[in-house]
Amino acid sequence: MSSSSEGSSGLAFALFAAGPAAGVFISGWIKAKYRNKGARYMPERVVKHHVTELVQDDTFLRKIVSRSRSINGRNDQSPEQRAQFTRTTKE
């Protein structure tokens, strides 16, 4: 397939998707503005905390090739979401 026909099919897909995408966007915007389901206490922003000691240990594992823009299972930007394994102990 030539690159011009790929380009036109891409444009056609975008035009087909524009209407439904607008509907999904408006619906999501209304829910977000009215229901505020994601609102929560954000201790990471408002609680005074002081890191007194920090140890880092990073080890190279391997080279990879991926079709994804970011690492699979990325969660570093949502600190409130717990990792798959958590453990609490008390002294």
Binding site: R69, S70, I71, N72, G73, R74, N75, D76, Q77, R82, A83, Q84, F85, T86, R87, T88, T89
Partner: peptide, 10 residues
């Protein structure tokens, strides 16, 4: 490309 935290222990 980010970090996938898999374990948290406190």
């Amino acid at each position: 490309r980010g970090v996938a935290w898999k374990s948290e222990q406190v």
